[in-house]
Amino acid sequence: MNINATLIGEAIWFGVFIWITMKYVWPPLAKAMADRQKLIADGLAAGERGKHELELAGKRSADALRDAKAKAAEILAAAEKRGVQMVEEAKVAAKVEADKVVAAAKAEIAQQVEQARAELRGRVAELAVAGAEQILKREVDAKAHAEMLVALKQEL
């Protein structure tokens, strides 16, 4: 074991390699690794955020669905109510109309009865006159007895 100038030479090599490592190897690699670490951390954070947003969106869509359902039910109920109301109204209208028709018919009937009665009255008067003519066997002056006949008509 002999110590000699080789020691100095090796120390120089050692120094050169330390210098290379310190200047050209370690800083870029350390930077690359730190950057990648940051990149991965950012990616994970973004993923987490995305997941959170998805959750929120799911909640929002569920809310919207629930709202829509409630609104649809509301509309359905309103429509039903309106339908019932319309039927009700139609019923009322129909009843009114029917009543009107019935009333009109009744009035017409009454009128016809009245007319028939009047006609009948005339016919009875004529018949009475004709009967009287027959009975009297003589010409009855219609004009002379008109007053009496009208009075008779009124009596019937």
Partner: peptide, 15 residues
């Protein structure tokens, strides 16, 4: 070793 690593480090990517 060290020139090799230096060459590699100069092309190091953070991707």
């Amino acid at each position: 070793a060290f020139l090799g690593m230096a060459k590699l480090a100069s092309k190091a990517t953070s991707g």
